[in-house]
Structures are given as structure tokens and as C-alpha cells.
Design a protein around this nucleic acid. Structure first.
Length: 115
DNA sequence: GATCTGACCACCG
DNA sequence: CCGGTGGCCAGAT
């Protein structure tokens, strides 16, 4: 990992429970980079399916999938989330108020301390 | 070391 | 409501 920031992003994303989602900006903010949303996008862009990170649970601040590129399999990001119980409307928008996950502070602290 | 680019976000018209 | 613009961060060239 070139930067601990990447590892932190991955560690946090792995903790997102099924049926929940987080936004890029939220992740960046939790990792003490309030303006680092784009960096989070980069971290996820570097991911591979073999890394076993549920990147599909990370969406943009508008409640939509950032990309509809099929990156790894037969299903789109949205279809994967729908399987987990995250429902989208006809515009591909989900209700962040309902599905957004707020990790416990202890977890954030552990990740920031590189545990 | 400088410049470009990107799976973003907030703001403004 | 939708599209354009600026800004921040990290990686790639």
C-alpha cells in the first residue's frame, strides 16, 4: 500500500454491514480528510475483486452509484446492493437517510491508529 | 518536480 | 431540477 490512507479506506469499507452504504465524502471525513472524497474514489478504483472489499456499498453523496461500468462480474453495483436489501428507485437513487451506515467511534479510532 | 487526471462534493445559475 | 465550475487529495506520467 503506497499510503496508509488506502489501507484505512479498505479497512473501513470492509466493516460496512450488508444492507448498509457509505458515501465517499463520509469515509474521507471519518479518516480525517474532510476534502478527500476523490482520494477515496481512487482507493476504490485500485481495488480488485480478489481483495474482498465490498466496494459496492460505497456510493456518492447523491445516493447513486458513481459508475455503471461493470467492473467485475455479471451484475452492476446497484444490482448487488439490491440483493443485500438496499433498494433504489427508478432513477437509481437510494435513501441515504435510511441506508447510510455510521460506524462506531471505536472502530474509526482503531483504524486511524493503524491497528 | 511539475502537470494531468479521476468511481467526488458543494455551490451557483 | 439539471448542468457547469472550482476545489480539495492522492496517484500516474
Amino acid at each position: 500500500m503506497a499510503s496508509p490512507f488506502y489501507a484505512q479506506v479498505y479497512a473501513l469499507v470492509r466493516q460496512i454491514p450488508p444492507g448498509k452504504v457509505m458515501t465517499y465524502g463520509q469515509i474521507a471525513w471519518l479518516l480525517d480528510k474532510p476534502q478527500g472524497a476523490r482520494a477515496v474514489g481512487w482507493a476504490l478504483h485500485q481495488l480488485t475483486p480478489e481483495m474482498d472489499v465490498p466496494w459496492q456499498r460505497v456510493i456518492n453523496a447523491q445516493g447513486k452509484c458513481s459508475t455503471f461500468l461493470q467492473l467485475s462480474s455479471d451484475y452492476t453495483q446497484q444490482e448487488r446492493l439490491e440483493r443485500e436489501g438496499v433498494l433504489f428507485d427508478e432513477k437509481g437513487v437510494t435513501d441515504l437517510q435510511q441506508y447510510q451506515w455510521h460506524p462506531p467511534n471505536a472502530l474509526i479510532d482503531a483504524i486511524l491508529n493503524n491497528v
